[in-house]
Design a protein around this nucleic acid. Sequence first.
DNA 1: TTGAAAGCGCTAACAC
DNA 2: GTGTTAGCGCTTTCAA
Lengths: 341, 341
Amino acid sequence: MDSMERATIRDVAKKAGVSITTVSKALNDYTDVNPETRKRIQEIARQMNYVPNVAGRSMGGRVDKVIGLLINDLRPMDPSGSVYGILSGVCHACQDNNIEFILMTTDGKQQTQRPLKMLCLRKQLTGLIFAGFRLNDPYLHQLDEIDIPCACIDIRTEKADVLDVTMDNERAAHEAVSFLVKNGRRNIALVNGGLDADVSILRGSGYRWALEEAGLPVRAERMVSANFDTQMAYEKTKQLLAQDHQVDALFCASDLMALGACQAIEEKGLTVGKEIAVIGFDDIPVARYLYGGLTTVRQDFYLMGYMAGKAIYQRIEGKEDVQVDNMMYELVIRGSARGKL
Amino acid sequence: MDSMERATIRDVAKKAGVSITTVSKALNDYTDVNPETRKRIQEIARQMNYVPNVAGRSMGGRVDKVIGLLINDLRPMDPSGSVYGILSGVCHACQDNNIEFILMTTDGKQQTQRPLKMLCLRKQLTGLIFAGFRLNDPYLHQLDEIDIPCACIDIRTEKADVLDVTMDNERAAHEAVSFLVKNGRRNIALVNGGLDADVSILRGSGYRWALEEAGLPVRAERMVSANFDTQMAYEKTKQLLAQDHQVDALFCASDLMALGACQAIEEKGLTVGKEIAVIGFDDIPVARYLYGGLTTVRQDFYLMGYMAGKAIYQRIEGKEDVQVDNMMYELVIRGSARGKL
DNA sequence: TTGAAAGCGCTAACAC
DNA sequence: GTGTTAGCGCTTTCAA
């Protein structure tokens, strides 16, 4: 019974004493089938453990709709949980809307070798969501070659047909830095991510905006880049603090970098939140347990994924005009940056 | 050009002036094709952006091999990163071995509604990896109904044909608790996960083993269960410490629970690592930044996923006898449990 | 070295 | 309400 060959629609038809057409109709909720026949067929199909062959059904002309999530550069670890959040969000959106979901990955090399269009054709995609892409990634420039609804998470393509699922990183950074200013901090340094990431550019720009607004100088030496890496942030911050004894606050473009920065601060015998205030970005789940509570800009990756999935689904269903609002963010104030100077 | 209908093998054949048979052969590396013909056809196919239709090819009899990762109960967040690690590990193993990978999810309800076998048939799986399952999950008892290679991560099925990808949780817990004993701790409590998780049972048993070995009493009041949840661990620990003033150490079955426990400890005015030593489990990426460094049992989820994927691949390729060694673990000693009492 | 033809499992016109 | 039939795109005998 176990290793029995897979039952086909023909097997079901034979057992039920009807044509395969009738079986097809019965199982696909067509109306022109006698309710009793349908019931009988369904019962038999269940008994036989019949599952329609997707390939056959696809050949027959019934193409299942599929939303693909394409992740660039999938790493072994995802310490901030951003990729996971997006993934589970898209996945749940697809479940809720009863549309198939598939996960795909790519990397820089593959992007130069296989055109994006081929990827879409091979997987028979109906909709596509991009995550983890950088500004200079090849696929980002092939978006007009594919004629299915697309969404990009955390990057501004600003193409008419593409759904940009982003939050206002510039404004968020501005709010964070302004908060530091309001608390009396005057020498605020920036620990940014790599400038190939769109969010880094925006957060850097929000940082400068806040300083300028407050009439504070924007000094190049106070802006370092640590590629979203904890260890590198530690080293860069260490250098920074060695060279510049005035620094009384740090705005970091991610919580993970804030971690490295805090380590450098404490190693120097200073206390995070006192001599030097620190604000991170993301609000990773453990942020509240770090350095007396890490002040940070919370964003919701799960929701980003979910909204992207939902919007793509709607576009697939013909609602050409759906857009995704800017994602929310929230400055979460904790011990690392509560204190006034 | 963009929205042109997808090219079929027939289109390529026509353009090349050969039969579709020849195109098929040329593109599938058959030897009975004139090298020049092959080259010409390949070139034309590329130009036309031709991608074989998977459904058609599957109907034709060429079934692509696919390894599925089935995740039970996919949550919006994965704070420990375990699910992500497994996922990326399996994914990379598949890439390295050039076999297709698909992600699937399920939950308790679906498990009671759709037989596992149907899932496999529908996705045409060649191999299957389970993650996130609990001892009483229905699918775990349907493993013999499917006739493809299977692996289970972090749960002992102990079925002959199933690859159990686990580490020796009992021994690891024993080692952790023994370390506490060696450092003079005599009143060690346990903050465990839910007992529907296999790993909880094993870690609990390792805890008792170590106590017994040291001639220390095993007291039921000192064993609480917090379902791998930080908040619940906080509450349970708070209760525990209120009732039992002797406790001088805590062994927690996850870092996340250790976090909650530490919070309860510090709230009581005690210092983690001094009055009360704490050991967690997992070694999440931020563990070294928590409470002066969280002592913990490191495990490598990425590697688990990778090994599971690789082993399943090998079984698919006919190596019936491949097994997966016990996964490694390592007691990582940091501030939260370094000090002798 | 090439091609004609059969068939994989299914759906959808259309006829009954 | 049910069945007949013609494909969908591809692979694979087998004959040329």
